[in-house]
Design a binder for these strands. Sequence first.
DNA 1: GTAATCACG
DNA 2: GACGTACGTGATTACG
Length: 944
Amino acid sequence: MSQSTPVTKASHVVLVDGSGYIFRAFHALPPLTRKRDGLPIGAVAGFCNMLFKMLKDQKDDSRPTHFAVIFDKGSITFRNDIYDLYKANRSETPEDLIPQFPLTRDATRAFGAPAIELEGFEADDLIATYARQAEALGARVTILSSDKDLMQLVSDRVSMLDPMKNRHIGPKEVEEKFGVSPDKVIDVQSLAGDSVDNVPGVPGIGVKTAALLLGEYGDLETLLDRAGEIKQKGRREKLLQHADMARVSKELVTLKTDVAVDVALEDLGVTDPDVEVLFDFLEEMGFRTLTARVRQALGDGQSDGIRADDTAVDTQGAFVSPATRGTYPNTVFDPTRYECVQTEDRLIHWIRRGFEVGVVAVDLETDGLDSRAANLVGVCLAVDDNEACYVPLAHKGEGDLLGEGVPDQIPMARALELLEPLLHDPAVLKIGQNFKYDLGVFLRHDLYPAPYDDTMLISYALDNGINSHGMDALSETHFGHSPVPFKEIAGTGKNQKTFDMIGLEDATRYASEDADVTLRLWKFLKPKLAAGHVTRVYESIDRDMPHVVAKMENEGIKVDRAELSRLSALFSQKMAGLEAEAHELAEGPFNLGSPKQIGEILFDKMGLPGGKKTKTGAWQTGVEILEDLADNGEALPRTILNWRQFSKLKSTYTDALQAQINPGTNRVHTSFSLAATTTGRLSSSDPNLQNIPIRTEEGRKIRDAFIAEPGHLLVAADYSQIELRLLAHMADLPTMKQAFADGVDIHALTASEMFGVKLDAMTPDIRRQAKAINFGIIYGISAFGLANNTGVDRSTAAEFIKTYFEKFPGIRAYMEATKAEAKELGYVSNLFGRKCHIPGIRERNPQRRAFAERQAINAPIQGTAADIMRRAMTRMPDAIHGVEGARMLLQVHDELVFEVPEGREDALIAVVKQAMEHAHEPAIHLSVPIDVEAQAAKNWNDAH
DNA sequence: GTAATCACG
DNA sequence: GACGTACGTGATTACG
């Protein structure tokens, strides 16, 4: 055990926050039980690994001279006398953790370290006491914890180490977190409060504001004394009103540094553990791997460091996807070998190399991010590791004088002419990363590269839900190599250069590296498709998306600027009226756009009931809260809601959309992301055309502005209830399948099954509830969520769910099987075999695990629908080929929008319906019919 | 840059 | 110690 060793300047005192560590280890590590009897020991295992690492795996200069593990004792401390609600919001300690508390103390002693605790004090107070004592003697102190409450102790001699992330926390890190130096941390916490410990603080003041105020006034007392001088009214009143709370909070967060400890600091001197005791303990726990490591460390005096032991790594290993295993053999990048191609001869040489190898990475550089507005600036090719070139085509001079210093470049038309045979050769595979972008640019130069592979989509098929699929992220994940950031060569902010302004040396280094990385990613990832059983997903669903979607983006959709402008004016007018009304009701002006001010007016000033706080301590003022208040007869909340609706419509749609209209064509071009979602859906941005209003009458007006060219019509084709149909098929629900086969209103059917109401006696209200339940099922229903959404109470919602499970018995089996699959494999698959990785599925935290389970239930349904849509889209060019002048413009998850010359709309609808309704075939067979509804009109609103 | 809010399927 | 409850997205504004 410990020995008495004086603490001096040369000492290194290591204090472990034992209680903090156990809780974190318990939640972070997979559940692990002792084989013999099922005793839960996961946290103990993590704890032992940490102790061993701390004691043995240290460099000589950081090895502890004094060491102790400190624990909380009891849950009532002196702080409860100050504030009876202190830590009152803590939930019960998990059942599986309770038996592990005494075991961690045993473990501590087995490692020869003192386990220290004292009735009436938290571990933090004991740590503070020892730390300050040691500091006063000039020693160095390391606190093993990530608890922010301990950060007030940090100084130039006292630092913290997060034992799970191995992250060092010094004065700099504390300042990053709190915005003030460590000696002001207490003051910040007193103001900001802490929801975890239920420290009240001053409402409405968070860490950021607290730091700001302290920066101005120095310390808490000064600030409270001079609070009357604060300019911002809200803050001033808060501080004046809650000064006492701040003072109480200060007492709560200030750690005691003068606890009368019963083990003296110098008695914490490190000794070697009693080997026999240690091995007995490890064997008792069944930690075989750790036993072996300890033996090895004691035997040869060297340790290879502790990796997580036994089960921890194995179970986590299940989440490592095929693609993330291993690295590409050559991860050395040599920019000196990249060539800048400025002559036809050299370009011909590179093209010849491309034909020889048959696989060429192609990357285009442009002067913007929007592939339609951007101009081609250069082309990049890679044919092998480190063998890449950059062909500048439209670089300007580095100086700003006209024509001054413009580099020699092959004329663009000539270069593209030379490249064309390579790009179109069916025997040469082109590789791109997010090739949709490059294809869009090529399209405008009348080039159609084929065949091609897209590394972003390969990664998406392999790893969705795990990595993101951008090039930099992929390079870092698989090669441990960070490509040159664009910012580094182009600068940032408004002085950021576009690519044509960048010098050839930098441009060559940057662009060639992109192509080089892309080619290596392809070599590394492509073979993994087969191993991951996702070849079919990639080949038959994703591979053709880039050129199909590039074409759609290029087409854009026509938007009537005058109509939008008219609506903007209309909405402005409405807002002005509502604003005046709101200010009158509030008896004073305020910013209607500020949720913070609204909360303060409704709940502080007017004192309305039903206020809830967000996790940051601000009042919630979302629709649901305001609706409730309005239902109670309050006028102001309704006015605010109405104002918000018009504000949203104006700012997000009628104003923003006008700015996005391409002046040449009067069309708007969105960008679809093919690899942004975990389920397989697309997303749309710049602008997002997948969330144009439709649910309210006012909002729908915006769709009037989406129009067809003169002499043309828009056609909107929607999958009808596709997710419910897929649910009926996947969960094998005979009643529901029959209803779909018969063309019955599915929500009415559900209602009649659940509530025993005949179809012809259906009321809209009952049907609406049934509809909510149907959606709930798809989202991985919970009683809480359903109650929220239908307005019934929680027990009624639970009854609904129970009835649903009884009436549609396949549901429960589907849900359980899906959760089990996710738990076993770490991912779920949709009907086409697309995987959706669910990283949280083995979370210890019940809430987060429940969230993961709902994701697991939803992903196959949403994802199968998404993939049916993808297949329909890739088949669409062929399908509509016979309808002259027809073009596909937009996708909105279950809807496709086309434009067609007037008179050909019926022909188009026929082929589109056919393609969409059979898109899943022959890959899968469904036991429900798929139904598509399509309509033609002059504008998007009327096409529904 | 983050949080809150709200638009869509 | 951390979650704060239906799935999947993106854009805007306030606030600092």
